[in-house]
Each structure stands twice: as structure tokens, then as C-alpha cells.
Design a protein around this nucleic acid. Structure first.
Lengths: 324, 324
DNA sequence: CTGAAAGCGCTTACAG
DNA sequence: CTGAAAGCGCTTACAG
């Protein structure tokens, strides 16, 4: 690899100072058109590309945003939510000329946010987007305490920008759909009670039943992992207890339940979230709430970098895909 | 936010020069134990954390590895391969104290590798891991031309480090399994003929049939998108043509086929790749080759950063999960 | 073992 | 409009 061409080389070739080269590179005003052309020519000739690190040091701007994905064991990466929102974030970030520094965080370990901490302390990133919110989210607290620009996807307790769906309302409406279909004994199966989103959905479930005056108690509420397998396993319990309907927080769980019911030749009405391929191709119809992962990601970036100065959060519409 | 503490502050507090502070921070030898302690104390007191950008500028080392994911329309991100290998890469990279700069590349656009190009030219990254190999992969060619340390997952034509499965052998063995189960008329359904991996698997399919002297011609070879839907659609054609077995390159396709056959009450033997949840929970058994995405990711990092200086590539074992 | 100095490659007041 | 100079916060020969 030959030596990289620097601003100095360009300046020399164009017969100007490095200040001037810097100005044309960063598209500053106050550059005479003919000098600009001279410099541009030298840039083209040399293939000059400014050194990112040097610029970052001088400007204190890294143009890099950390995106944090929790990988607690109960939070399944199998869910396409992550890759979908990630892609949307990437696309949007590109428009702002920013890059993604990807971090899988160990929400369950004591050195919880050590990774995030060191990224921030060492000035490697300018901002962060966190893809989930835990019930007592230490990382978010830390983020807030540092003052680094942050957007979380979910509903944080802290005073921090966020984008979210109205999960309670969405689950309420989804549950009401089950009721409208004749549901009398309805179970709730949640993925991970450590996540705020799960609790919000449970809340919506309760609200719908309360409103319709349909009986339920805590024994109707189940918490399992975010996996097909856990849905599959819980299904036998649901069958034993003669539920006619079930509201799930995630397609993986819902699919496992559908699979098992189908094997047993039993019927059940299912609603769920994320509208993934699984709900679409389930052996027993699964109506599923589309949370619009791409929009969530896109909006997160807008909130972080956009012009909407006073906007504190953004709520993304959900959309139930009915199947029966 | 208060001003960040710099090396100068620590030096002043400890009563030493910044050179000395730098030495203890980077764990250099040749530091007197008592000075080291003095400095360490000052570091602890101030909470000093070296500035990443400044260090990177001085050392010309960014400790950042770009990971490139192609997002050509035919390459489904729904496949958990991406998130699985990504996570493994992240874990392994952490051991080397490196971070991931995530790039979704637009393999289908003319400014194909512009993103990658600018990352390299601007010295923002030290190396790259690319998660797939296209048939005539311009990005890989470019990477090689720059001399930047690179590892690709797949089988590249260029002289570049790579980690891969023996896809031809794996598909050959999988197809032989179909034959052993009595398969006489076997179709091949591939996901994306632009990917080398798909062609390698087709090759294995052909080898197995040739060896067993089972008839096939080009009309037995289908290429569809990497989606459940495309599998679902192709299924009718397979049914019309009375195939008794099918070898697919991806679980998404295989699942779609299984779904449709099941609806029609038809039988077919299916083998596939990736051993995802879909193959596990398919209505018609799908035997699936586990390519070990995590291992692929892990090894990619080892190849890039490990001690094995002379190693040019690494082949990861596959493992067929038989289901019937 | 330790420090002064140069250097990494930019940006940006400041002066003209 | 343009340039000389200082500065961003480190690292690392070099000298002692």
C-alpha cells in the first residue's frame, strides 16, 4: 500500500495552503471560484480523501452512532425485528452521512453497559440508538447521565427521546378482536417480563377483558421465552385449561402454540405481534400486529438527527393483519 | 457535559509527563512501579479514559472492523444467518477489543461499493468481513486491490482470506440422503444464482445424481427468490411435474414448498440448508444442513486477527439434521 | 526509567 | 478570499 495522499499533497499540487484545501473539501463559503477549481483538480488528480480520524479529532465529531442490541437469553435474535430495524436505521443514517457502530450488549451481566461506557468515554461515538427497553434499564440511565444524544425504541422511564408503538392500545384492540370472534376464555402469553413492551401489552390485554367484562385472573397470564419452542411447550397447558383464545406478544411463541394445537387437532384463536413470516404461514391462522420495524428504525434516526427540535418522541402506528 | 479529562490532566495530577501517563495507560514496559502507581491513582481519581480518536490518529489504528451485509432484493434478511453470524463476530471481536462498523451494501447499484470505498479511503476501518460472495463480486475485487485485511464468508474467486462450508459436499450428501430414502425424481430449488454458494450447492446436487445415475436435466433446476413465498409458488410446478423429492438451498424456500404440499395433501421429501426454526417446525419434515453460522462468524474473526499467519482459509463443518 | 519534542492529518479563529 | 499558526489528544523515537 502506497502512502495515503494527505491534504498537504493536494495543497502543494494546487499551489495553495492547506487551509484553502480544507475549505473546499468541507464546502465552506468564501473560496474564490478559480481557486476552488484548481484545488478540485488537484483533489481529483490525487484521489484525495480526507482522513476521518484527523477530522474527527479536530472537530470532535465522529459521525458514528452506536446501535445497541440486547442479547439477553430470553430476547430472541430470531425475531426479524432486529435486522429489519437495523437496516432501516442504516439507510436513514446514510442520508446523514453517519455510520453504525454495532453493539450487542449483555443486559444480564454485571458489567452491563461497560461496552457502551467505554465507547462514550473514549469519544468513539456521537450518539446512540438502543433497540429495546428493559424494566429497570441501567444502560439507559447511564446514557442519560452522560448527556450523549440518545434515542431508544420502546417506552423508557427516563427522560430520553424515544420512538415506540402504542403497545397497550395495540394489544387491547387485538384482544378485542379475539372477543369479537367469540373468545370467552382468553390466555396471555408474554415473551419476557423484563421488557417494558411486554408489560405494556399485558396491560392492553387486561384492559380489553375488563372493558368487555370477561373473566380472567393471574393464572391466565403466562410468561415464556421468546421462542417457538416455549410456545410449543406452553400449548399443552393451554389445552388442559380449555382456553379458546390466546394473545401472544410475539410470533415465535404464537407459532409454537399453533404448531402444537394443530398436531393435537385442537382449535384456538390466536393473535400476536410482529407479523413475521411465521404468522403468515402458520398452520392455524395467527392474526398479527405489524409494528413496522422499519418505520421505528427510521424514526429513531430522525429523532436523533432531524430538525424537529422540540419533538421528544414519536409513536408509530400499528396495523393488525387479520387472519382466520 | 463537563470537559473531558485528558492525558494532560492526569499527568499534572500525578506530577509526571504525559509520556509517562501514556506508557502506563498502554501498559508499556519500562515504567517504575511506584510511578505506575502514582499515575494509576490519578487515573482512577479523574476517571480518565484515553480519547479514541487521538489515539487512532497517532497510531493509525482504528480498532474498527467493517462488517458488510449485502442486501440485494433476492437475499433475504429474514434468514437468521445474518444476525447469528453478526453476533458471533461481535463476541469474538470483543476479545480483540475491536468494534463492528456495520454496513449494508447495495450490491445491485452502480455505486456498489462506494460506501466501503469511502470507509477505507478515509481510514475509518482497519479491516473488513464480508458476509457473502457474489458471482462477480466487485466489492471483493476492490477490497483486494486496496490491500486492506479482509475475510469473506463464502468462496471468493479472488486471492483473499475466507471461511466457508464445503457447500458442494454438503449438498451432495444431503441429496444422497434423499436418494437413500427412495428419491427417484428430484428437483433442485436455489435461492439466488448470483451467489456463489448457490452454485456450489447446485454442483453438489448434480454430483449426487450423477454418481447414483439418476436422471435429471436442466428443467429440474429452479431458481427462485430467498423467500417462503417463492417456495410456496414453485410448489405447484413441482407437484405438476411429479417430483418425489426436492433439494433446496434455503429453509425459507423449503418451508414454502412444505406449506403448499401440505395444503394440497401431497407428499414430498425435502432437504434444505440453515436448519432454522422453519425447518424444525415445518408441517412436512425438512431435513436441513446446519452451516453453523456462529462458527463461520467466529472463524472469520480468527482468520482476520488471529495468530495463524499462514492460514488462508477455514472450512467449517456442516451437519445434516435428519427429519422424516 | 522518564521527559521534551515532533508528529499523526485535519479544522478554524485570527489577521491581513 | 487566503495563509500562518495553534490546537485537537494522543504516541513514540530520541536523548539522557
Amino acid at each position: 500500500m502506497k502512502r495515503k495522499v494527505t491534504i498537504r499533497d493536494v495543497a502543494y499540487l494546487a499551489g495553495v495552503s492547506i487551509s484553502t484545501v480544507s475549505r473546499v473539501v468541507s464546502n465552506k463559503v468564501n473560496v474564490n471560484e478559480s481557486t476552488r477549481q484548481k484545488v478540485q483538480k488537484a483533489i481529483d488528480q490525487t484521489g484525495y480523501e480526507p482522513n476521518y480520524t484527523a477530522r474527527a479529532l479536530a472537530t470532535k465529531n465522529t459521525d458514528t452512532i452506536a446501535v445497541i442490541i440486547d442479547r439477553s437469553p430470553t430476547l430472541s435474535l430470531g425475531n426479524s425485528f432486529f435486522i429489519d430495524s437495523l437496516e432501516a436505521i442504516s439507510t436513514k443514517l446514510n442520508e446523514y452521512k453517519k455510520d453504525i457502530l454495532l453493539v450487542f450488549s449483555e443486559a444480564n451481566y454485571s458489567d452491563e453497559h461497560s461496552k457502551v461506557k467505554s465507547l462514550i468515554q473514549s469519544n468513539k461515538i456521537d450518539g446512540v440508538i438502543k433497540l429495546s427497553v428493559q424494566r429497570n434499564d441501567e444502560t439507559i440511565k447511564y446514557l442519560v447521565s452522560t448527556g450523549i444524544p440518545t434515542v431508544v425504541i420502546g417506552r423508557p422511564n427516563e427522560d430520553v427521546l424515544y420512538v415506540n408503538n402504542d403497545n397497550t392500545l395495540a394489544m387491547k384492540e387485538a384482544t378485542e378482536y379475539l372477543i369479537s370472534q367469540g373468545g370467552k376464555k382468553i390466555a396471555f402469553v408474554g415473551g419476557n417480563s423484563k421488557l417494558v413492551v411486554t408489560l405494556d401489552r399485558e396491560q392492553g390485554f387486561r384492559e380489553a377483558l375488563d372493558k368487555a367484562d370477561i373473566y380472567y385472573d393471574d393464572s391466565y397470564i403466562y410468561y415464556e421465552g421468546f421462542t417457538i419452542d416455549s410456545g410449543y411447550k406452553i400449548a399443552d397447558t393451554l389445552i388442559e385449561n380449555n382456553f379458546d383464545s390466546v394473545a401472544c406478544t410475539d410470533d415465535l411463541i404464537a407459532y409454537g402454540i399453533a404448531k402444537r394445537y394443530n398436531e393435537k387437532g385442537k382449535k384456538i384463536k390466536i393473535i400476536s405481534f410482529n407479523n413475521t413470516l411465521l404468522s403468515e404461514f402458520s398452520p392455524i391462522p395467527i392474526s398479527s400486529v405489524d409494528i413496522d420495524a422499519k418505520k421505528l428504525g427510521k424514526e429513531a434516526v430522525e429523532l436523533l438527527l432531524g430538525e424537529n427540535n422540540n419533538k421528544k418522541h414519536s409513536i408509530i402506528d400499528t396495523n393488525i393483519i387479520f387472519r382466520s
